[in-house]
Amino acid sequence: MRKPSVIILSGYGLNTEEETKTAFELAGARARIVHINDLIARPSLLDATQIAVVPGGFSYGDDTGSGNAYGNRLKQHLGRTLERFLARDTLMLGICNGFQILTKAGILPGALIANNNARYTCRWADVEVAGESPWLGGITRMSVPIAHGEGKYYAPPAMLAELKKNNAIALAYAEGETARHFGLPFNPNGSLENIAGVTAYDGRVLGLMPHPERAVRFTQLPHWTLVREDYARAGKKLPTKGPGLQLFRNAVKYFA
């Protein structure tokens, strides 16, 4: 299988590029981390790339609004480059702060505002696949961690209707394994219609608040030591992979 080439942006406080790179490599892609200023200096780097990722983090400390300053920088210096990139049959992913950045840069619709509890929240949640996207094939539900202060999805009514019409609501928080296990509310932030992720460009661009890259290993699961007991008692071998990996495998498969 031909390995697709992935560029993961970094800089100004993005901070999940390394685990994102690991997840893509586990899935069989060639991934490299590129500082946004290096991409601004050499936009042609994107020409030989199939997948572009804006990972999670705390770009510019969320000052002036989460994702705002980085989103503006992206739009001003790389707006045309990204347009060209997306005109090809490519994939793009925005995780957490990357999702916020892509909304501020005008690539994904909507906005992410402060969680209902008005506090940074780190826990696991369950999402179900609601829309269609090359990123999501073969996934119906998955448990993934979230870690954000401004992850509550917002879109005005007309935009929401448009999203629905285009089947662009990709992921929704749903009552599932981890929320039930810990007795936590399934919608962790008060998102409109439980929206956890949306798509654009016919599903090729996906933005999501949860972190699938932190759910690629069995021992990342929040209750794996309990599951281990069940495996031990049943005399079964422990799994090694986590539920988030499929998303990255899908991206690799898309270019196979």
């Binding site: 901070n15 999940t16 390394e18 685990e19 690991t22 997840a23 999670g56 506090r119 940074y120 929240t121 780190c122 826990r123 961690p145 870690a147 972190h211 890259e213 932190r214 690629v216 290993r217 021992t219 990342q220 030591t225």
Partner: peptide, 14 residues
């Protein structure tokens, strides 16, 4: 603990 990110870097085990 719920407001401190303990999942970033993907290294969390317990």
């Amino acid at each position: 603990a719920q407001q401190y990110d303990h999942e970033v870097l993907g290294s969390s085990v317990t």
